[in-house]
Amino acid sequence: MSAGEMHPGMHPVDEALVQRLIATQFPQWAGPAIERWPSGGTVNAMYRLGDDMIVRLPLVQGGAGDVSMEQEWLPRLAPRLPTRIPEVLGAGKPAQGYPWPWSVYRWLAGEHPEAGALSEPLLLAEDLAAFVAAMRSIALPAAPKAHRGGPVASLDAETRAAIKELREIPEEGVDCDAVTAVWEDALRAPGWAGPPVWLHSDLMPGNLLVDGGRLTAVIDFGCTGVGDPACDLFPAWNLLPAGAREVFRSALGVDDASWRRGRGRTLSQALIALPYYRSTNPAMAHNARHVIREVLAEA
Rank of each mutant, 00 (worst) to 15 (best):
G4D: 14
E5Y: 05
M6D: 14
G9T: 07
G9P: 03
M10N: 09
M10D: 04
P12R: 14
L17D: 02
R20D: 08
I22L: 14
T24V: 13
F26D: 12
W29D: 15
E35S: 05
S39C: 10
V43G: 05
V43Y: 15
M46K: 04
R48K: 06
L49E: 10
D51V: 07
D51G: 00
M53V: 02
M53T: 02
M53S: 11
P58D: 04
P58H: 08
G63F: 13
D66W: 14
V67Y: 11
V67R: 07
E70H: 01
E72I: 11
R76T: 11
L77W: 10
A78T: 07
A78Q: 05
P79W: 15
P82V: 04
I85V: 15
I85H: 06
P86S: 06
V88K: 01
P94H: 06
P94G: 09
A95I: 10
Q96V: 09
G97E: 06
P99I: 01
Y105N: 00
A109E: 04
H112L: 09
A115Q: 05
A115L: 07
G116L: 08
A117Y: 04
L118E: 11
L118G: 07
S119K: 03
E120W: 03
P121V: 07
A130C: 09
A130V: 13
F131W: 02
F131P: 01
A134D: 01
A142D: 14
A143I: 08
P144A: 13
K145F: 10
H147S: 12
G150N: 05
P151L: 15
V152E: 05
A153M: 10
S154L: 14
D156N: 12
A157D: 12
K164Y: 13
E165M: 06
R167E: 15
R167S: 13
I169C: 12
E171G: 06
G173T: 01
C176S: 12
A178L: 13
D185S: 08
D185M: 03
R188Q: 14
R188W: 04
A189H: 02
A189C: 07
A193F: 00
P196W: 11
V197D: 08
L199E: 03
S201Y: 05
S201I: 03
D202E: 14
P205F: 03
N207S: 06
L208G: 11
D211Q: 08
D211T: 09
G213Q: 07
R214N: 09
L215I: 10
L215H: 03
V218R: 02
V218N: 02
D220T: 02
T224Y: 15
G225A: 11
G227T: 03
D228K: 08
P229E: 01
P229L: 07
P235S: 05
N238P: 00
N238K: 03
A242E: 05
V247I: 09
F248P: 01
F248N: 02
R249T: 11
D256Y: 06
W259F: 02
W259R: 07
T266E: 08
L271F: 13
I272R: 12
A273I: 05
A273T: 09
A273R: 06
L274S: 11
L274V: 13
S279E: 15
N281P: 03
M284K: 00
H286Q: 03
R289K: 11
H290G: 00
V291I: 09
I292P: 12
I292K: 09
A297E: 08
